[in-house]
């Protein structure tokens, strides 16, 4: 099939191509239009906003991988954020303990999502819609919408520190991305995860414990939502109960722009990361161009539709070739 394709067709068939071109065009346009774009500080700002979004996108990507969805990423993130903040401020927990406990809460939330979905056989959409409301309720019930401000200085310093244009905050997302790529490409559970998403029935027939893999995907998704929340707390320097309320669209946007199929089995760590880069560049460009911030919301919607359309086109072309 590949032999018959022209160079252009092959380029179109590549997952990353459109994204890479869009990112390059964006970089060139912004660099030529605004001298502030390529300054060290602006690059630092962009990389910093990249961190949380990337992990949120990964959290959704893992549930998409098995053909499920997780509407509770943001709600779970908010809960972990205030739990970590509360543990550090009210109970004086050392930072590593609080961070580990926060990750555990995230994983536990994901485990609940996974078990409920698998055990009841109810659509994951409804289950995570319900648990999202429950997580938000616990968050608001505990905090009554009041943030935790007095966090350990070292923790806050990590959120703002940088080496030239590189924020320290970037370290965890890069490690997580590498770990995920390795997990999905090289480990047995990772391959099983993709197999279940690609064809649950075939996977089950070949002896893969389907339910256990789905629960694992949800648990990892919760764990990553927790990690994103902890980074968001470090980034903001305070544990806001509102962390996560605006994650939903972003969490779906990046994997889908990166070519993930809702039906499962088809995800890419690199393409998702590139999609986040594109989103961050667009947001930054909007700020530099002093455009109404509401355009970001509008463009994100348009971008998802464009990506979905492009994927359809690619599928049709591939089918026809």
């Amino acid at each position: 099939m590949t032999n018959n394709m022209t160079l252009g067709q092959r380029f179109l068939a590549n997952e990353w191509s459109a994204l890479a071109v869009a990112i390059l065009v964006g970089l060139v346009v912004l660099a030529s239009m605004s001298p502030a774009f390529l300054t060290e500080f602006n690059l630092y700002v962009m990389l910093r906003s990249f961190c949380v979004v990337l992990i949120v996108a990964f959290a959704q990507m893992l549930t998409l991988a098995v053909g499920h969805m997780n509407l509770s990423v943001g709600a779970l993130g908010g809960l972990v954020a205030i739990a970590v903040g509360g543990m550090m401020e009210k109970w004086g927990f050392p930072v590593p303990v609080a961070v580990l406990a926060g990750l555990a809460i995230g994983a536990a939330g994901g485990l609940i999502n996974g078990l409920l979905t698998v055990r009841t056989g109810i659509n994951g959409f409804i289950i995570t819609l319900a648990t999202a409301s429950a997580f938000t309720g616990i968050n608001l019930g505990i905090t009554e919408s009041i943030p935790f401000y007095n966090l350990p200085a070292g923790f806050v310093a990590f959120g703002t520190g940088r080496l030239y244009a590189l924020p320290y905050l970037l370290l965890p997302p890069v490690l997580i991305a590498l770990a995920l790529a390795f997990f999905l490409a090289r480990t047995v559970p990772g391959r099983q995860l993709l197999a279940v998403g690609g064809n649950p029935h075939a996977a089950e027939l070949s002896g893969i414990p389907r339910d256990r893999v789905i629960v694992m995907a949800h648990t990892l998704s919760g764990l990553l939502a927790g990690a994103a929340a902890i980074l968001a707390v470090a980034q903001l320097g305070s544990a806001q109960p509102s962390i996560g309320v605006d994650w939903l669209l972003m969490s779906f946007a990046a994997p889908i722009i990166g070519g993930a199929a809702l039906t499962g089995g088809h995800i890419s760590v690199a393409a998702t990361a590139l999609a986040v880069v594109l989103i961050v560049i667009i947001q930054n460009g909007m700020v530099l161009a002093k455009v109404d911030p509401y355009w970001v919301q509008f463009l994100l919607g348009a971008l998802i539709l464009a990506a979905v359309g492009l994927n359809r086109l690619r599928a049709v072309r591939a089918g026809g070739a």
């Binding site: 819609l129 648990t131 409301s133 429950a134 938000t136 309720g137 608001l140």
Partner: peptide, 11 residues
């Protein structure tokens, strides 16, 4: 504040 939790559990 707790309403959200109740609604989620009821659903």
């Amino acid at each position: 504040f707790w309403l959200q939790l109740f609604l989620g559990l009821i659903l």
